[in-house]
């Protein structure tokens, strides 16, 4: 199976039976192969609808969606779904099956030979950081929320689908675990490069996760589809500006790292206050303010000095 495919929404529209207004109104956008697109918006603006139109848990009432150029309407719905990983908020693990059996479900119904399934389960558990020996035979109830969501992701990846749909996958986790899982998923995504549609109502998560962000509003209307930088620096209208928040200037700083800047030459400085080159500009600014300084030394991961950052440098970069 190919490792990624692009997804094209072409005036995709859904009006639920008994409702006059569409839940998703003529959505048109393209998610390039291998990228993460975050569908961002407040509750009820059609994010889940947009997502489930792709795997046809919800059927289109207008327009079309194409995966690698083929309309989803033309594909057998079961085959279509088996080629799409699907991750939901509470993981939706099968409580009566072990972790290994949960992950093996799609390969099993696809009729893979047993040894291949076993190898795949082992590989995936390794990939999401849950060693098979320790976790394979456990039941979902014996795992923490974060661990369950890892299994949910492994299960979605089982048959190596080119596409992943993730509906607020980390929404039920505590903030610390959530941030950790976001990092883990980004690391994992860098390895597997699945085209990913990711639903979120959290601007910080969207900025972290998305290569692109689609901002949706009430009635399923697309307000802006752009990179996180553009959404933060040039919101399309007042609604988007309000949604991304008055601190969007600070949020934008999370997108850049010190290593992206041309730093001033290293000139020594207080030990222990040094920043690392892979720190974000937001972290750097925070450290500068906390230290009451207008310049701080920067080192690489091994502690070797690489330069000096100043408040002015950050202002220019923002």
């Amino acid at each position: 199976m190919n490792s990624a495919a692009d997804i094209v929404f072409d005036e995709a529209t859904k009006t639920y039976p008994g409702s006059v207004r569409p839940a998703l109104d003529a959505l048109s956008l393209t998610v390039p192969a291998g990228e993460i697109c975050v569908l961002l918006g407040s509750s009820g603006c059609g994010k889940t609808t947009a997502l489930t139109l792709v795997n046809r848990l919800t059927e289109l009432t207008g327009g079309d969606i194409r995966i690698d150029g083929t309309s989803i309407r033309e594909q057998d719905v079961i085959a279509l779904r088996r080629g799409i990983g699907y991750v939901i908020q509470q993981a939706g693990l099968f409580p009566h099956l072990t972790i290994a059996q949960n992950i093996a479900t799609v390969p099993q119904v696809l009729g893979w030979p047993k040894p291949r399934i076993e190898d795949r389960v082992r590989e995936l558990l390794e990939l999401v950081g849950l060693p098979h020996g320790e976790y394979g035979d456990r039941y979902p109830a014996q795992l923490s929320g974060g661990q369950q969501q890892r299994v949910g992701i492994a299960r979605a990846l089982a048959a190596d689908p080119p596409i992943m749909l993730m509906d607020e996958p980390f929404g039920a986790l505590d903030p610390v675990t959530r941030e950790h899982m976001q990092d883990e998923f980004l690391r994992l995504h860098a390895q597997v490069r699945k085209t990913t549609l990711f639903v979120s109502h959290d601007i910080d998560e969207a900025v972290r996760m998305g290569d692109r962000i689609a901002v949706l509003a009430e009635g399923g209307k697309l307000l802006q589809y752009d990179t996180p930088e553009r959404i933060l620096h040039a919101p399309a209208d007042d609604y988007v500006a309000r949604f991304v928040g008055t601190d969007r200037g600070l949020k934008a700083l999370t997108l850049r790292r010190l290593s992206d800047l041309t730093l001033e030459p290293y000139a020594g400085g207080a030990n222990g206050t040094a920043l690392r080159a892979d720190d974000s500009l937001r972290t750097a600014l925070s450290a500068l303010l906390a230290a009451g300084a207008d310049r701080l030394p920067v080192t690489d991961a091994d502690g070797h000095p690489v330069g000096t950052v100043t408040v002015d440098l950050i202002r220019e970069a923002a």
Binding site: I78, R81, R82, Q89, A91, L93, F94, P95
Partner: peptide, 11 residues
């Protein structure tokens, strides 16, 4: 959610 996940993965 369990049934939704099952249906969504193509059972």
């Amino acid at each position: 959610d369990v049934v939704r996940a099952a249906r969504g993965m193509g059972l």
